[in-house]
Amino acid sequence: MKLLTLRTPNGMKAVRQDDDTLTEIDGYASIGDLLQTPDWKTVAAAATGATHPYEGADLAAVIPAPGKIICVGHNYRNHIKEMGREIPTHPALFAKYAESLIGPTDDLALPPESDAVDWEAELAVIIGKPGRRIAEADAAEHIAGYAVLNDVSMRDYQFRTIQWLQGKTWESSTPFGPALVTSDEFSAGPLMTSAVDGEIMQSTPTGDLVFTPEFLVHYISTIITLNPGDVIATGTPGGVGHAREPQVYLAEGQLLVTTIEGLGKLSNKVVREA
């Protein structure tokens, strides 16, 4: 099942996608709201609300206001190698905030303060069931589904200090969506790519993670309770602009496209922040 958050003239609506049709899930303003209901999957499957065409839909970030966005650094071996690091023994974690999120076709804002804006295609895990100290063997039960995310990074700010947060959570910089694809229809493995103006920059199977989604749910929940609607961005593979020789960054007017087979596509025009 594919679940999306749609912007309408009457406000945001949680919707279910059936081929080319979006059906409103009455009573819920977003998929984040829907996930607060323990039987969210049954509610979504049974929805019979107003319908909208998928083509031309104005989609918000699939979870517009997560309680937590926890990101993982250095989780693909080819990216670890290109950045000159060692394979980690534990996940490198940092936070991102909801103000950074944009929809799957929204404009991506280049801030005037940064000249080193880079792409990072990622598989996002969305939590559907709360838990603390979740065993790795039980972690799959807590995953509602998966989505596409691009952890666009302002490298000049990221590497000002050994803490990365200031380069990772700029406002209106993180495309997320288009849909939550439920975990019964997707698991890590299919190909993930990012492209700039049609040129493939990253291309790696999502199964090449050092730390799997299930391990990350276990590890992070040891530290803090994971709640429905929380998001884990699982890391980016090799091919980022910062590691190229010479280095390459996003420029005004370009189109950044991020795709994971089975989850969908983000397509974001790069613009100067107003």
Rank of each mutant, 00 (worst) to 15 (best):
A47R: 02
E24N: 06
T206K: 00
E245G: 05
P228M: 14
T8P: 01
D115H: 12
T258S: 11
H74L: 15
D39I: 11
P213D: 08
Y249F: 15
P130L: 11
G56W: 05
A116G: 05
Y219R: 15
M1C: 05
Q17T: 03
L4M: 14
W170N: 10
S114I: 06
R244L: 13
L22S: 03
R7K: 13
D156A: 09
P237N: 05
M1F: 06
G49P: 04
G262H: 06
L255V: 11
V148N: 11
P246L: 05
P237A: 01
G264T: 04
E82A: 04
T89G: 14
R244E: 04
D19E: 12
V15A: 08
V15P: 00
G73L: 01
F176D: 02
K129F: 06
T105Y: 13
P112Y: 11
D20V: 13
Q254I: 02
G264M: 03
S183G: 09
G235L: 01
I127R: 03
G177L: 08
D184M: 11
K269N: 08
D19G: 07
I87C: 06
P9Y: 00
G241S: 01
F215K: 15
I126K: 03
Y157S: 00
Q254Y: 00
I31K: 02
R133Q: 15
T51C: 10
A98D: 14
D106I: 04
G56F: 07
T42W: 02
G131P: 02
T5W: 02
G253M: 12
Q36L: 13
I200G: 08
M154K: 07
G128C: 09
L93R: 13
N10R: 10
T48V: 08
S267A: 15
A137T: 13
L6N: 06
S173L: 07
P9E: 04
G131L: 09
A251F: 10
T161A: 15
M201R: 12
I232L: 14
H74G: 01
E185C: 14
L101A: 04
I87T: 12
L216V: 13
G73C: 06
L263E: 03
E136S: 12
Y76P: 00
L4D: 00
Q158Y: 15
G253V: 09
L255D: 07
L3A: 00
L6D: 04
P111T: 07
P104G: 04
D138K: 15
